[in-house]
C-alpha cells in the first residue's frame, strides 16, 4: 500500500467487507435494451436517408436549368417547374403580407399589453364617468369599462384558441378558404385565394413564435425605458420590439417553410390546374392568376401514371426540399447571429 503515513506506523488492517467486490459482468438485458433504443433511433434516421436518397436518385437526372425555366407541359420531357416556382413565390409574398402584421400585432398585444393590470385604467375611467361627461363620450367610456372587465377572459380564450388552431388539420383551413374567400368574398380560385388561405393557416404559428421571441426579451429593458418616462407603447416599440425582431423573423421563416410545402389546403381552395399558364410575379395580379405552386405541381405529376412524370415529380421535390433547406439555414444563421444572451 502506498500511503503517506509516518514511517514506523504499521499499515492499518482494513475491515472486511461482507464479500469481495463483484467483477464487472455482462448484463444481456442491459446491452439488448441499449441496442434496441439505439437501433430504433438509427431506423428512424435510416428511413429519412432512404427517403431523401430515393428522391434524389430518381429526380437528379431531370434537374436542369431548362426544368426550372420551362412551363408545364403534357409531355414529361418538356414539362418544367417554372410556373410552380413563380406561383410559390407569389403565394409566399401574399401569405407574409397578410399573416405577418396581424400575427406580430396579436403577439405584441397578448404578450405586452393584455396582461397588464386593468385596475388603474378601470379606476380612471370610472372617475371620468363620475365627473359628469355625457353623450357619446360617456357611452365610449362605458364600452371601455366593460372591455376592461371582460378582457382577462377574452385573453384566456384567445390563448386556448391559438394553441387549438395550431393543431387543426391543414385541410380544414382549405375548407375555410374555399367557403370564405372563394364562396363568400367571390375571389376566384386563384393565387390570391391560396395565399390568403395559407396566411390564415400560419397565423397561429407566427403568433406563437413571436410571443416566444417577445418573452425572451428581459423585462428590465422595458422597465428601463419606462423609468425614463416612456409610455409602455413607446418602450415596447423602441426597445422591446427591435430586440425581439431577430427571433420573430426566425419564427416567421419557419412558419413560411411550413406554408410553402402545404398541398392539401391549396387543392381544396384551388383545385388542380392542368393549364400551361405562366403566372405573373406581380402579387397585385394574383387575383387573376391560376393557382400554381410547387407542391401542387409535384402532386399533379406524382398522380400521373407514366413513369417519366414520376422522375420530374422527384426533380420538383428536390427543388422544394432545397428551398426548405435554404430557408432553414437562413433561420438558423439569423438566430445564431442575432441571438443575445440576456
Amino acid at each position: 500500500m502506498t500511503t503517506l503515513e509516518a514511517p514506523g506506523t504499521p499499515p492499518p488492517p482494513p475491515a472486511a467487507a461482507t464479500r469481495p467486490l463483484a467483477r464487472k459482468r455482462s448484463r444481456p438485458s442491459e446491452q439488448l435494451f441499449k441496442w434496441l433504443v439505439m437501433g430504433l433511433t438509427a431506423i428512424t434516421i435510416a428511413m429519412l436517408i432512404w427517403l431523401i436518397s430515393s428522391v434524389v436518385i430518381k429526380g437528379a437526372g431531370s434537374l436542369s436549368w431548362a426544368f426550372l425555366a420551362d412551363k408545364p407541359s403534357s409531355n414529361p420531357d418538356k414539362a418544367g417547374f417554372n410556373s410552380a416556382l413563380r406561383g410559390s413565390v407569389v403565394l409566399m409574398i401574399i401569405t407574409i403580407f397578410f399573416a405577418w402584421p396581424i400575427g406580430v400585432a396579436a403577439a405584441l398585444y397578448l404578450e405586452k399589453f393584455a396582461t397588464q393590470s386593468a385596475e388603474a385604467s378601470e379606476r380612471k375611467v370610472r372617475e371620468r364617468l363620475g365627473s359628469g361627461v355625457s353623450g357619446v363620450h360617456a357611452g365610449w367610456l362605458r364600452v371601455r369599462l366593460s372591455w376592461l372587465r371582460v378582457r382577462p377572459r377574452v385573453v384566456h380564450l384567445v390563448d386556448v384558441n391559438i394553441s387549438n388552431l395550431a393543431a387543426v388539420p391543414s385541410i380544414i383551413y382549405g375548407l375555410l378558404g374555399l367557403a370564405i374567400f372563394v364562396g363568400i368574398l367571390g375571389i376566384s380560385k386563384s393565387l390570391l385565394a391560396g395565399g390568403l388561405t395559407l396566411a390564415v393557416l400560419i397565423l397561429p404559428i407566427i403568433i406563437i413564435a413571436a410571443r416566444e421571441a417577445l418573452r425572451a426579451v428581459p423585462i428590465s429593458i422595458e422597465q428601463g425605458a419606462m423609468a425614463l418616462g416612456a409610455t409602455r407603447w413607446q418602450a415596447v416599440r423602441s426597445q422591446v420590439f427591435p430586440a425581439a425582431l431577430p427571433g420573430i423573423l426566425t419564427g416567421t421563416i419557419l412558419a413560411m417553410s411550413r406554408a410553402i410545402g402545404e398541398t392539401a389546403p391549396l387543392i381544396v381552395v384551388g383545385g388542380i390546374v392542368f393549364g400551361t399558364a405562366v403566372p405573373s410575379l406581380n402579387p397585385l395580379d394574383a387575383g387573376n392568376e391560376a393557382l400554381f405552386a410547387m407542391p401542387l405541381q409535384i402532386y399533379f405529376w406524382t398522380d400521373q401514371p407514366q413513369a417519366s412524370f414520376q422522375a420530374i415529380a422527384a426533380a420538383g421535390i428536390i427543388v422544394l426540399l432545397a428551398t426548405l433547406l435554404v430557408m432553414n439555414l437562413v433561420a438558423i444563421i439569423l438566430r445564431n447571429r442575432y441571438s443575445k444572451r440576456w
Binding site: S54, G261, T263, A264, T302, A313, I317, L321
Partner: peptide, 14 residues
C-alpha cells in the same frame, strides 16, 4: 418538417 406531399411520393415510389 417534411412536406407531406414528399412523404406521399416516397410511399408510392419507394
Amino acid at each position: 418538417g417534411m412536406p407531406t406531399i414528399v412523404l406521399g411520393f416516397f410511399a408510392l415510389d419507394a
